[in-house]
Design a protein around this nucleic acid. Structure first.
Lengths: 149, 149
DNA sequence: ATATTTAAGGATATATTTATCCTTTATTAT
DNA sequence: ATAATAAAGGATAAATATATCCTTAAATAT
């Protein structure tokens, strides 16, 4: 579905939404370990997510790190894809044809269309924090220790 | 969604289903031109689709080429993905987590699940020929000249 | 001011995907 | 048999994605 790069971006952003506040910043080492991704590479990716200062915020130096404001957590998941340059991910033809359209549909166009629309609205309608809600405290983030008990 | 390789495979197989019979084989040059793909690369990909002799058939020499039997045309689209080694494409976690499951779901698991199921059944239930049915004769295969008029 | 901490950024390495070219093999037509 | 045709297959190149390392810049604590 997504490239590894985008998978790391989604995991990182969702994790930061789950675990950080303006008062509780997360270091790159913690994030990379929690989401099971290569640290240096993830650092570059999170850099991209800080561009424009709308999604992820960062502070350098001691007690610095990454965090998301409450406002940022309410943004749609789509914003992550936008910052990764994957915003047209679901807009494209499933067979990769540039000229595929309603008027000149590819052989899978109408079969794929309703599914594509659900994918688009999944990312457009759901906020990052709505996903981050950790209902049963057993999310599949490998190294996070979410259990309270 | 898919890699370019898989996109070419889908386009090629669908095109061969549309245009070939055992008596009317298609050359690699025609196929590559019709589906707008690099010829040599597409040749390798179609080779993969001939493995096991269940989907695409090939004959060498003069009047040779590629074709699909009527039986092959009735196979589900999924078979193309299988031969390309992309059979688990939709089975995987949308965030790329290996340990994502019903018991330990990733933050998008349940939101993505119904969409994933539709994708799986699109490829499992629909036959290649059912897609290939060229309803309005204006498919987005760039260089095919489907118009009868 | 200085040292320490942590992200930002540049340069480079590695792996994988995508693509081309050339030779070989099978089949057909003469 | 020989030449022509078309796919099969091997070797290699180019492009892109993935990943690491090192230096720089900013913020904090002392």
């Amino acid at each position: 579905m997504f490239s590894k790069t985008t998978e790391y971006a989604l995991r990182a952003a969702i994790y930061i939404a789950q675990k950080s506040t303006a008062d509780k910043k997360l270091g790159i080492a913690e994030i990379a370990k929690a989401i099971d991704s290569p640290q240096s590479f993830t650092a570059k990716i999170i850099q991209q997510l800080t561009r424009g200062n709308t999604l992820v915020s960062s502070v350098r130096g001691p007690n610095g790190g990454f965090f998301m404001t409450e406002k940022a957590k309410r943004l749609p998941v789509r914003v992550i894809l936008d910052l990764m340059g994957e915003d047209s991910k679901f807009q494209t033809c499933i067979l990769g044809l540039k000229q595929c359209s309603e008027l000149k549909p590819c052989p899978m166009h109408f079969e794929y269309k309703p599914i594509k629309e659900q994918l688009i609205s999944l990312f457009a309608d759901r906020s990052i924090e709505s996903l981050a809600e950790d209902i049963n405290n057993e999310h599949a983030f490998i190294n996070s220790r979410n259990k309270r008990g």
